[in-house]
Amino acid sequence: TFELKGKVGKVVKIAEDHYLVEVEGDKWIAYSDEKLSLGDRVMVVDVDGLKLKVKRIP
């Protein structure tokens, strides 16, 4: 999972307290300090167990 840091993915689902992002064909639970929208491109900035911390990228 640490090899996911720096990888780019996209938001595929928005849940009440987390996001579902697809990175390299796999779906992961993710969270972010900013509000994300469906389809946003994101970069993995940290890995916390099986959850990814992501940030939006242009």
Rank of each mutant, 00 (worst) to 15 (best):
L50I: 09
A15V: 12
G25T: 07
L4N: 02
L50S: 10
S37A: 09
T1A: 15
G39D: 15
P58V: 03
K53M: 13
V8Y: 04
G6T: 01
W28Q: 02
K27Q: 14
D33H: 12
V45L: 04
R41N: 07
V54F: 01
V54Y: 00
D33E: 11
V47T: 03
V8K: 05
V44R: 00
A15K: 07
D26S: 11
V11P: 02
G6V: 00
V44G: 01
V12R: 10
V23W: 00
E3W: 05
D46V: 03
K53N: 13
V42K: 00
K51E: 07
G6E: 02
I14V: 10
A30M: 09
E22W: 09
V12Q: 08
L50F: 13
S32A: 10
P58E: 06
G39R: 14
G9S: 02
E22A: 07
V11F: 02
E16G: 11
V42P: 02
D33M: 10
K7I: 02
H18V: 12
D26V: 05
D17I: 11
P58W: 04
T1W: 15
L50W: 13
K10G: 07
G49P: 07
L52P: 03
K10Q: 11
L4F: 01
V47R: 02
D26R: 02
E3F: 03
K35W: 08
E34M: 07
D33S: 12
I29W: 08
D17F: 07
H18L: 08
L38H: 12
H18G: 08
V21I: 13
P58G: 13
E34N: 05
V12W: 07
D46C: 03
V45K: 04
V23P: 00
A15C: 07
G9Q: 00
K53F: 15
L38P: 07
R41P: 14
V8F: 06
K51D: 13
K53Y: 14
R56K: 13
W28F: 12
A15N: 09
D26W: 14
V11H: 00
E3V: 01
D26E: 07
V8D: 14
K27A: 08
D40Q: 09
L36V: 11
L52A: 03
E3S: 00
S37K: 13
V12F: 06
L50M: 12
K13A: 04
V54K: 00
H18I: 14
G6N: 02
G39Q: 12
S32I: 15
K5T: 14
I29S: 13
S37I: 14
V54Q: 00
K5H: 12
V54E: 00
V44T: 02
K53I: 14
I14R: 09
D40G: 05
V42R: 00
D17N: 10
I14F: 08
G39E: 13
L52D: 00
T1E: 15
W28I: 03
D40C: 05
D48F: 09
V42S: 04
G49I: 09
A30Q: 00
D46T: 03
S37G: 08
I57F: 06
L20C: 06
P58T: 12
